[in-house]
Design a protein around this nucleic acid. Structure first.
Length: 404
RNA sequence: GGGGGGAUACCAAAGUGGCCAACUGGGGCAGACUGUAAAUCUGUUGUCGUAAGACUUCGCAGGUUCGAAUCCUGCUCCCCCCA
């Protein structure tokens, strides 16, 4: 195994990175790794609280992947122990702790999805319950002596909650200790995290120093902005693009990000080579429309392959731009000569969630049959032999009605 | 241990006996517009019903009343302050 020169490694490592603390130590570590021909231990901890991964998670996983590709050792920690505490970082509420079974189940789905990004053969997976679980209460108290109350409450997330009369449980103070202990246990060289993880990552350095280890370098990645363009991507804000989503969804959702996010997305979530980035930055400003399609294509390609991405593009052009019925619209068959109320057809097919919604949709002009808007809730169709009608409900729900 | 405040729809938040299926904002959905599933504007937003209307919903369980989200009793949960 031979490692790339320091400068080249740094170029990859610094792609999209917000902050490296401290950068000089990282350079030293890389140099040493080259002379000793020994990979660095790169640590990433994940709490499988929500098992479904989205592009926001992919930012940090991709960074870990980049380290892998540079020849370093990727260690993915499943926070079996820490998930039962709940990371307070960036939260305005205590996270609900998970049971051991939930963690186990979530961890499996998490890891399975993570293989879409990481190199499975080169990843070490560990569960921090293995070493945090057996720790004695006295050990916890000793660990806790490394932090002060003042340092805790000066944290933004805590002080805000405190000021807003929102509860902070004592156990939330202990979370960073648990995470930091992971670093001590693994003797990690670098720990990755989002910018909201800075505090936790730095605690790892403190604890390592207290244990006579060389402290880890902390590398922070920005939080990916969601499709709404303002808040960080998160399932609970419903502004996410899941890496498990169907290609069509992925393509369409990618296009819905605001123009200013085009470049950050290229930098943070795509696998396009670093050298291509400057050109893309320019293009994103000059020709946002096509560049965004290129982005949507790239993202879809990464998770579904080339052909699926091409199909998704066609699908988008057909349904959204030309407002045409897609090829894969479900077909609903009806017996010849029978009469059905359109409202019942729509509700029964599950295209809406209630009759009330169907009616509302019709009144608002959201329902059309063969491009003709149907506003009358009593509208009925009698099916004659060979009939085939295109039904559209709302922006994105289609069905083909067939007599047969 | 003592004192105070609170629980309303997806979220936030008004409502303190009938005009409340419940103001308002956010979100969602739809329409118009658009390179876009963005932005903006407009409308809409419990369930069933073509409709009239009926039914369920304001922490939980009872009660008062012709009538309760609103009053009474008990219970559960939460927050703050003082010690």
């Amino acid at each position: 195994m031979s490692f790339l020169p320091v400068k080249e490694q740094l170029t990859v490592i610094k792609r999209g990175t917000t902050e490296i603390v401290p950068e000089e130590e990282l350079i030293e570590k890389i140099k040493k790794s080259r002379t000793e021909n020994r990979p660095l231990k790169i640590k990433l901890g994940v709490d499988p609280t929500r098992p479904d991964l989205h592009l926001g998670h992919s930012v940090i996983l991709r960074k870990l992947r980049q380290f892998q590709d540079l020849g370093h050792e990727a260690i993915l920690i499943i926070g079996g122990f820490t998930a039962t505490i709940g990371d307070p970082s960036g939260q305005n509420k205590a996270r609900p702790p998970l049971s051991a079974e939930e963690v186990q189940k979530n961890a499996e789905t998490y890891v399975n999805q993570a293989w879409k990004i990481l190199d499975k053969s080169k990843t070490t997976i560990v569960n921090n319950n293995d070493w945090l679980g057996p720790i004695k209460f006295m050990d916890v108290i000793r660990l806790a002596s490394n932090l002060t109350v003042a340092r805790m409450i000066e944290r933004d997330d805590f002080s805000k909650r405190y000021q807003n009369n929102e509860p902070i449980s004592l156990h939330e103070f202990l979370y960073p200790l648990a995470q930091g202990q992971d670093s001590v246990h693994l003797k990690s060289d670098v720990e990755l995290g989002g910018t909201d993880q800075k505090f936790n990552l730095l605690v790892g350095r403190d604890l390592q120093k207290a244990n006579g280890q060389k402290p880890q370098v902390c590398l922070m990645m920005p939080l990916l902005v969601g499709t709404d363009g303002t808040m960080k991507m998160s399932k609970s804000y419903d502004n996410y693009i899941g890496i498990d989503e169907p290609a069509n969804e992925m393509y369409g959702k990618s296009l819905s990000i605001p123009d200013e996010q085009i470049y950050p997305y290229f930098e943070l979530v795509t696998d396009l080579p670093v050298e291509d980035l400057p050109a893309l930055k320019k293009k994103a400003q000059q020709d946002p429309r096509n560049t965004k399609h290129e982005l949507a294509f790239t993202i879809t390609r990464m998770y579904h392959g080339d052909q699926a991405a091409k199909d998704a593009r066609k699908h988008f052009e057909k349904t959204v731009i030309q407002k045409d019925i897609p090829d894969d619209a479900p077909i609903l068959e009806f017996k010849e000569g029978t009469e059905h109320r359109l409202m019942d057809i729509i509700s029964d097919a599950g295209l809406t969630s209630s009759n009330g919604e169907t009616k509302r949709m019709m009144k608002q002009g959201g329902v059309s049959v063969d491009d003709k808007k149907i506003k009358d809730p009593n509208f009925s169709i009698t099916f004659a032999a060979g009939d085939q009608l295109n039904l559209k409900v709302g922006k994105r729900n289609f069905a083909i009605l067939k007599a047969g």
